[in-house]
Amino acid sequence: MNRHTAREKAFQVLFQLDINDNEPTTAIAEFLENEENNTFLTALVEGVAQYKTEIDNIITRNLENWSIHRIASVEKTILRIATYEINFLEDIPTNVSINEAVELANSYGDDKSGKFINGVLSKIIA
């Protein structure tokens, strides 16, 4: 599984975790069923879950005229993944994290999601 696919699957698992309060390891196992797990996917899910409060604080500080509670689950989950990558994973270039987040937003969000994600992440890295 490549990193793009792992991010997409991590997004789906984290989206479910946002709705159902489950353990990250259990959620990954249930989501993947018979598929082989991926270390990057696991790192993203467990990292976002572990640092969720800190990640949400970073996102909140960089929102204009929004609160994190008003952000739709799709965008919030994508922002959490990208913010985790930017702040906690040193081996991923920032522009890759942002591009992947915008791509996820364009696939799973509405027509304005990509621009919103890009704007918030641009403020986070500034």
Rank of each mutant, 00 (worst) to 15 (best):
Y108I: 04
T5P: 01
I58S: 07
D56R: 03
F88K: 04
N95P: 01
I86C: 15
K115I: 14
E8N: 04
I58H: 10
A72G: 07
F116P: 10
G114I: 01
E75Y: 03
W66Y: 11
I71W: 07
D110T: 13
L79Q: 02
Q12R: 12
E8D: 03
S67E: 10
A43G: 05
N99G: 14
S97G: 00
S67W: 07
N99P: 01
V74M: 06
V48A: 02
D21F: 09
I55K: 00
E54W: 07
F40D: 02
A29S: 11
E75D: 09
T42N: 11
A27S: 11
E100D: 08
D111F: 14
E85G: 02
E46Q: 10
H69A: 07
L104Y: 03
N34P: 06
T94E: 13
I78T: 02
V13W: 05
Y84W: 06
T5M: 06
G109R: 14
A49S: 14
I86Y: 10
S97E: 00
E23S: 11
E8V: 05
L79V: 06
K112H: 09
N20H: 07
I92S: 00
N118T: 08
L17H: 00
L14R: 00
V74H: 04
N65K: 13
N87K: 03
A43K: 10
E35H: 13
F31Q: 01
A101R: 04
T94F: 06
V74Y: 08
L44H: 01
N38A: 08
Q16D: 10
T42S: 14
N34A: 11
A72T: 10
L17T: 00
L104K: 02
V102F: 12
L63I: 15
N95L: 11
I117R: 08
N62E: 13
L104C: 05
I68R: 01
F15E: 05
F15M: 14
T77C: 15
S67N: 08
K9E: 03
L41S: 04
R7G: 06
E33Y: 10
I58D: 06
S113T: 13
